[in-house]
Amino acid sequence: MKILCVCGLGQGTSLILRINVETVLRQLGVQADVENTDVSSASSENPDLIVTSNELAQSLEGHASKIVIVNNYFDTNEIKTALEEHFNN
């Protein structure tokens, strides 16, 4: 499974999100290749899952990948809840 963590510029915030997503995936026992990138690069990639904010999800509307929305990239509880919802559906 490939997961992209997306922010506007693909550097600071998406890196923090990536670290937190990796932490949550370990807690859930899910194996995945997690990368971080900017929103324009994400539109040309084909991951299984994109984790991003609501604003950036609108920019990726119509993307073939499933998009998981997280409002607070620092909140591992919110990230865990969002990913659990995805994996349980």
Rank of each mutant, 00 (worst) to 15 (best):
Q58E: 15
S44Y: 14
F74C: 11
T81F: 09
A57G: 06
T23Q: 11
A57T: 08
N71F: 11
L56Q: 02
V51F: 07
F87H: 04
N88F: 06
T37R: 02
A42S: 13
M1Y: 13
T13P: 01
S14R: 03
V39D: 05
T81M: 09
Q58R: 14
N46C: 00
T37N: 01
A82Q: 11
V70L: 06
E45R: 15
D48P: 06
N20I: 08
I19M: 15
R18E: 15
I3C: 06
I16W: 03
N72E: 14
N88D: 03
A64T: 12
G8I: 08
L60C: 07
Q11F: 14
N46G: 12
L9P: 02
A82D: 07
V68K: 07
I50Y: 06
I69H: 04
S43C: 12
G12A: 14
S53A: 12
I16S: 04
E84W: 05
K80V: 09
N46T: 13
I3L: 00
L9I: 14
G29D: 03
N36C: 08
E55F: 15
I50N: 02
E35Y: 11
V70N: 04
Y73C: 06
L15R: 11
H63F: 00
Q31T: 15
V51M: 10
A32Q: 03
P47T: 12
L28G: 02
G12D: 03
E55R: 14
Y73N: 09
I50W: 01
D33I: 10
L4M: 03
L60R: 07
V21S: 02
N72T: 13
L56V: 07
R26F: 04
V70A: 05
R26V: 09
N77V: 11
N54F: 12
V51N: 11
L60H: 07
L56G: 03
V51P: 11
V68R: 10
V30M: 05
E55P: 00
T76N: 08
I19P: 01
I50M: 06
V51C: 10
G62Q: 02
V51Q: 10
D33N: 10
N54G: 15
E35P: 10
V21K: 01
D48V: 05
S40W: 15
L25S: 08
N71Q: 15
S43Y: 15
C5V: 04
N89D: 13
L49N: 09
E84I: 08
E85Y: 11
D33V: 10
E22H: 02
L17D: 08
E22Q: 11
L60Q: 07
S41F: 12
L17W: 05
L28V: 07
E84G: 01
V30G: 04
V34F: 04
V30F: 06
L25I: 07
S59K: 15
L9W: 10
V30H: 02
N36M: 01
S59H: 12
Q11W: 13
G29C: 02
A57M: 03
Q31F: 11
N77C: 00
R26I: 06
N71H: 14
T13D: 03
C7I: 09
A82K: 11
E85W: 09
L9F: 12
G10W: 00
V30R: 04
S44M: 15
I79V: 00
E84F: 04
